[in-house]
Design a protein around this nucleic acid. Structure first.
Lengths: 201, 201, 201, 201
DNA sequence: TATGAATGAGTTTTCATTCAT
DNA sequence: CATGAATGAAAACTCATTCAT
């Protein structure tokens, strides 16, 4: 009459977290469901109690990562400082995060790559497009704010500039992924400095 | 008396090209050797006459792509124009290439992702590190040239700036991959403009 | 002081009935214990409170069906009419029942098929042999009765004839199962007519 | 240029034959693809070179059985003798076959049962309906022939009678399947005798 | 040299059954 | 008693690779 009480939502999250780690380590194809189960300390079958298939687990990982990325972004944007300042600290902070979490880049690449997948590509592409649009939107807002306050040259296209900034962050992370000896932290500083000079009134 | 040597080399390239297309479409894990063979119009066994394994085919694809990327890069760098000018046209030209060949990004992601693979990750990472180092080297050279000629501010770190430029190109390509409606061509223009202003003397 | 004993028995029957429906729909192998539980409106674990295993549930279904079949048979045999008459109405009535309950034939096939099963085949075969022996016995009795009363030719082997009659009923049901457009009701009439003429004195 | 030459059609047949034996022994659900492969003396993967799935193998078995049944039927119908005579020898011969091949009845039941299967039921039902229609057609033809020759009473419905004969054959086989001690051969004789008397002019 | 038939290691997935609540 | 969360044995199926022709 009173079956075992389990916070299924919490359990799902924990499994997705375990999956994230395993996918990061071995890649989607290389990861076996048993690996995920073992990492989470449960039996193979339990994974299937929470996710219909390996693919669904993949999406759960994606959603988890998006959620955390979002949280990180929000923390920086909502500060109280001049727009240009916030733009700079956002770049620095996100690049620092990228360095801290390099291992996750492997999953990210697989997710990007998955965008061309016949069966679930659309779903992924849409989600990514939304994520990036949102990201660029935040940045463009910051830039417009800066233009309004006279800190940033009015002639620059906020959307285009936002795309560049987003891109630079991703790409510095990528370069670090490929070669841990690249000093992307100071590359970020250089970028911020050049950016500041380039966009300043 | 070494007949058909040329044919053999040509066949290898053709197979690698077929593999590139298939990997781009289905990803490394999703691609079957038969798919590659069919795409190339040969029998399954023939692929193994030219490549020891699927993994080796993956590397051949990588080398083919590197080769072509290198050719594209060289064409722009060796022009005769002010350094800042060449930097700008390089960015624009490479972003345009990225748009033209979006489908190939899928393989690129797979390759980046492969960097963390237990068995062949090192080999891939080294190759990528070299490629990017080389790429950044070219750009840093260009930047130093510009600093020598007084076109570019002396205070900026050429290596760091080069990393940012390389990154921006990759990342604009990525954004286009995810969302074909993003106008990365004009984002590239904005970037070039901001860059010019930011780094100018 | 044995409370709820009746309830328990009733519940078992209800579960067996649910299982009959599910087995009929998906076959023994295709039916999941959860399906049965859901159909009966109880939890998965509850099924195991009443049946030791899926196999036992299968037998319970068999027994339930036997019980009902027996009841149907008895109702016809115990009538008060000439033997040949009762034989005819028995055939007609059982064929009519078969048409009414076609869906159940699916389980019947599974049960017949189960007779060759390594672990429980013997048990099933024995049960079926008994059932059919009993059935043939009733009919043979009827036939002998008819022979005694001079309605039926004495030369015919009662057991053999009974086997044919039993068979014809099953088989008309089968043909209807396979093809609902076959008019087995009138086929039964034809059979009865031919039978009457064939066995009449 | 000249790969191993194999008669794929012949190989398929051999695999289907092996599958028939295994299905007969363990039932569809109980049979493992490895069992079939082993019985045929090939590797697990080879089965999949010839059949897309276990289900397709099931159908191949069905077709093989139909084909052989058809051959058996044809052999008897095309004889040269009075219609009633041929009808009788047909029944005796098919019942004798049923006794010889009892083990196959298990598969037959599974096939009949499969008719209600959601995904492939239609395909099976259609095939069976055709098979039986054809069977009844042959018999009805024989009966009409007999009526034309004045051997059989004109009042009897040929189609209905054919259904009964078909049914009787199936059902005698079934009773033998369930209980090997039932003497279906002499039951067949009794049936033929009663039939002859019942339908004779 | 080219081919495709054969193979089996390795994965995903299902589901009967157990058992803590 | 009832429940459903957890489990792992077992099976279908895929595909890189080998090798006889």
């Amino acid at each position: 009459m009173a079956p075992k009480i389990v916070d299924r939502e919490e359990r799902r999250r924990a499994l997705a977290a375990a999956a994230t780690a395993v996918f990061a380590e071995k890649g989607y194809a290389g990861a076996r469901i048993v690996d995920v189960a073992e990492r989470a300390g449960v039996g193979k079958g339990t994974v299937y109690e929470y996710f219909r298939s390996k693919e669904e687990l993949f999406f759960a990982v994606f959603e988890l990562m998006c959620h955390e990325e979002h949280a990180r972004l929000g923390a920086v944007v909502d500060q109280d400082a001049p727009a240009v300042e916030r733009l700079g600290s956002l770049v620095r902070s996100l690049v620092a995060d990228a360095v801290d979490q390099v291992e996750l880049y492997g999953v990210t690449f697989e997710l990007w790559s998955g965008c061309s997948h016949e069966t679930y590509g659309d779903r992924l592409r849409t989600a990514f497009a939304d994520l990036y649009r949102d990201f660029r939107g935040h940045l463009a807002g910051l830039i417009r704010e800066g233009q309004g306050a006279g800190e940033i040259r009015a002639g620059l296209d906020p959307e285009g500039l936002a795309a560049v900034v987003v891109g630079a962050i991703d790409a510095l992370g990528l370069q670090y992924w490929v070669d841990r000896s690249v000093d992307v932290i100071s590359a970020a500083d250089t970028f911020v400095e050049a950016l500041r000079a380039g966009i300043a009134q």
